Simulated assay, not measured.
Amino acid sequence: MKMQSNNVFVFIKLLTLLSLFVLSASQDFDFFYFVQQWPGSYCDSKQGCCYPSTGKPASDFGIHGLWPNRDDGSYPSNCDSSNPFDISKISDLTSRMQSEWPTLACPSNNGLAFWGHEWDKHGTCSESVLNQHSYFATALGLKNEINLLQALKSAGIQPNGQKYSLSSIESAIQDASGYTPGIECNNDSSGNSQLYQIYLCVDSSASGFIQCPVFPRGRCGSSIEFPTF
């Protein structure tokens, strides 16, 4: 009887270890980057931009993506080719996607290629916590939680083509959100550094913002432009 009990204990322990292994294998990331981009900076660059087929987007930050990431700065990508992007799964979100997650790639298009790329490369790596619909719905919800443009405007930082200190941009977002942002810059057609993308971090269950464990390389100077759009 004692040997039988020991065998049961060992079996249960093995099952527990196996379940932990399966869980860790299925969730190969530690947090998410939630990335928004300024359309004026995307367009004011050497490659330029094209407005989507639905028309010019609003003068506001647009979603770039929700990206699973690891604490060491690496990230998984293209995790499940058997579950490709399917627009029918997010048909109820399409109108919001067009306004809050617009494409600026050329030639002008309806955004499906952009959204499909984000799902195939990043979304498929979050399937342990988000299915295809919840992946996009979660990103839309996160955008509404923190109004980046209003946070900057409230601090006197306007998209008017003027230069602002990187530290003032970071402080404005931190004061409004409670979290330190990662800032990424690109260069305009004249080579000037400008505010391009803002990174905020989200916990591994995609349930809320957290302080970033690691920041992306921003390539920003101490003083950067905030171009019009």
Rank of each mutant, 00 (worst) to 15 (best):
M3S: 15
M3K: 12
V8L: 14
K13I: 14
K13Q: 15
L14A: 10
L17I: 08
L18H: 15
L20G: 09
F21K: 09
S24C: 13
S26V: 14
D28G: 14
D28M: 10
F31C: 00
F32L: 08
F32A: 03
Y33Q: 00
F34G: 03
Q36L: 02
W38G: 02
W38F: 04
P39W: 01
D44H: 08
K46H: 15
G48K: 15
Y51F: 15
S53D: 12
T54I: 03
T54H: 00
G55D: 08
G55V: 05
K56W: 02
P57D: 02
D60P: 02
G62R: 01
G73V: 01
S77G: 12
S77P: 07
N78E: 10
N78T: 06
S82L: 11
I87V: 12
S88M: 13
D92S: 14
L93I: 10
L93S: 07
T94M: 14
S95H: 03
S95L: 07
S99H: 01
E100P: 00
P102D: 03
P102M: 04
T103G: 01
T103M: 01
L104I: 02
L104K: 09
P107F: 05
S108E: 04
N110G: 07
N110Y: 09
G116W: 03
G116F: 10
E118T: 05
G123H: 05
C125L: 12
C125H: 05
V129P: 02
N131P: 04
Q132H: 01
Q132E: 10
H133F: 13
S134C: 13
Y135R: 04
Y135V: 05
A139E: 02
N144Y: 03
N144C: 13
N144W: 02
I146R: 00
N147P: 03
L148D: 02
L149D: 04
L152M: 06
L152G: 08
K153T: 10
A155K: 06
N160W: 06
Y164M: 13
Y164K: 12
Y164F: 05
S165Q: 15
L166V: 13
L166Y: 13
S168C: 14
I169K: 04
Q174V: 09
D175I: 15
Y179W: 09
Y179D: 06
T180Y: 03
T180D: 02
E184R: 11
N187Y: 15
D188F: 04
S190I: 14
G191A: 07
G191K: 04
G191I: 12
Y196N: 07
I198E: 05
S207H: 02
G208S: 07
I210P: 03
C212P: 03
C212S: 10
V214Q: 00
V214H: 01
F215V: 00
S223F: 12
S223K: 09
S223P: 09
